[in-house]
Amino acid sequence: MKIPPYALLLLATLLWGGNFVIGRAVSGDIPPLTLAFLRWCVAFIVFFPIAFGNLKREWRMLKAHWPIVLLLALTGVAAFNTLVYIGLHYTTSINASLMNSSTPIMIYILSFIFLKEKLSKFQILGTALSLSGVVFIISGGSFASLVDFTFNKGDLIVVVAIFCWSIYSLLVKQYAGRLPGHSTFLVTIFIGAMMLLPFYVYESMTMTNSIHWQWSTIVAILYVGIFASIVAFLSWNSGVIQLGANKASIYLNFIPIFASIFAVIVLGEKLHTFQFIGGIAVVAGVLLTEKK
C-alpha cells in the first residue's frame, strides 16, 4: 500500500520535532558531542546496508564533487546537530524548534548574498517578519535584553546551528541533480562521524562521568540515530518526490508544533507568550516568502 505524501512529511516533521525534545531531555545524562557522535554511528550502521549498493555504482559522481561532499558532512552532519545539542544544555526545546523554523529565511539570505538571487517584495517582507520573530524569542520578549544585548547563549548557539543547516540545505538544492541522494547521505554520515571522533574522545577523557548509561539514554541514542535520522530522512525524501519541494517545505512548520507539544507533555516546559508570538511571526514570515 502506497503511503500518502502528506503522511510521510508529517511523520518526518514529527520525528524531527522529537529530536529537539530528546536532546533536551538527556542533556544531563549524555554530553552533546557524545550524543552527536553516537547518533551518527548508529545511523551509519542502519543506513549502510540500504545505501551501499548505490554507493558502489555512484562512487565516481561523489569523487568528482568531493569538496562539496566534505562541506555537506561538516555543515549538515558534524556541525548542525552537535550545536543544537550543545545549545539545548542552555535553552528550551521550544525555543530551539521555533528558531529552527527560520531556516528557509536563512536560505533566502544566503542565496541573495552568494548566488545573487533576487528577492521578491514578499520574500523581503517575510524575511524581516521571520527574523524579528527569532529576535523576539531570543530576547525572551524583553526590550531590555535587546538594549543590553544580554541573550541566552543556548539560543545564540542554535542560531549558529541553523546557519550551518541553511548552508547544507542550499548545497543540497544546488547539487541535487549532480549528487545521488542515498550515496551522498551515507558518505556524509561517515565523514561527519569521523570529524566528530576527536571531539568525542576529548570530551570522554576530560569529563569524569561522560555518559550515564541507563534505559533512557540508550533509547535516546537509538531514537536520534534511527528515527530522527534514517526514518525521517527517507520519509521526507519520498514525500518530496511525490508532492514537490515547494509544497513539501510548508510542512517544516509542523516541527515546532510537534516539538512544543512533546516538550509540554514530556519535559513539563511551559509555552510562554513571547514564544507564541515569536513563533507566529517566524512561521508567518516563512509563509509570506512563499507567496507569488
Results as ranks from 00 to 15, higher is better:
Leu74Ser: 05
Leu74Val: 11
Thr75Cys: 13
Gly76Cys: 12
Val77His: 01
Val77Lys: 00
Val77Gly: 02
Val77Glu: 04
Ala78Arg: 01
Ala78Glu: 05
Ala79Arg: 00
Asn81Phe: 15
Leu83Met: 14
Leu83Asn: 04
Val84Phe: 08
Val84Arg: 01
Tyr85Leu: 11
Ile86Cys: 05
Ile86Asn: 00
Gly87Ser: 12
Gly87Arg: 01
Gly87Trp: 03
Leu88Thr: 08
His89Ile: 09
His89Asp: 12
Thr92Tyr: 09
Ala96Phe: 08
Leu98Ala: 07
Asn100Cys: 10
Ser101Asn: 15
Thr103Ser: 15
Thr103Met: 15
Pro104Gly: 10
Pro104Ile: 05
Ile105Pro: 01
Tyr108His: 08
Ile109Met: 12
Ile109Gln: 05
Ile109Trp: 04
Leu110Thr: 02
Phe114Lys: 11
Phe114Asp: 12
Lys116Tyr: 10
Lys116Leu: 10
Lys116Phe: 10
Lys118Ile: 11
Lys118Trp: 14
Lys118Asn: 14
Lys118Gly: 11
Lys121Ile: 05
Lys121Met: 09
Lys121Asp: 01
Phe122Glu: 00
Phe122Arg: 00
Phe122Val: 00
Gln123Thr: 05
Gln123Leu: 07
Ile124Asn: 00
Leu125Lys: 00
Gly126Val: 03
Thr127Trp: 02
Thr127Cys: 08
Ala128Leu: 15
Ala128Pro: 03
Ala128Gly: 12
Ala128Lys: 03
Leu129Asn: 02
Ser130Arg: 06
Leu131Phe: 12
Leu131Lys: 09
Leu131Asp: 04
Val134Asp: 05
Val134Gln: 05
Val135Asn: 09
Val135Tyr: 13
Ile137Lys: 04
Ile137Asn: 03
Ile138Phe: 06
Ile138Val: 15
Ser139Asn: 08
Gly140Gln: 09
Asp148Asn: 14
Asp148Ala: 14
Phe149His: 13
Thr150Cys: 13
Thr150Tyr: 14
Thr150Asn: 14
Thr150Lys: 15
Asn152Trp: 14
Asn152Leu: 11
Asn152Phe: 14
Gly154Gln: 01
Gly154Tyr: 02
Ile157Pro: 02
Ile157Arg: 02
Val158Phe: 05
Val160Tyr: 08
Ala161Pro: 05
Ala161Tyr: 04
Ile162His: 00
Ile162Tyr: 00
Phe163Ser: 12
Phe163Cys: 11
Cys164Lys: 00
Cys164Pro: 04
Trp165Val: 04
Ser166Met: 08
Ser166Asp: 09
Ile167Asp: 01
Tyr168Thr: 04
Tyr168Pro: 01
Leu170Ile: 11
Leu170Met: 15
Leu170Thr: 07
Lys173Ala: 08
Tyr175Thr: 10
Ala176Met: 11
Ala176Gln: 14
Ala176Asp: 10
Ala176Lys: 13
Ala176Glu: 14
Leu179Trp: 07
Leu179Ser: 06
Leu179Gly: 03
Pro180Ile: 10
Pro180Met: 10
His182Arg: 14
Ser183Phe: 07
Phe185Val: 15
Val187Thr: 15
Thr188Leu: 11
Thr188Glu: 07
Ile189Thr: 10
Phe190Arg: 06
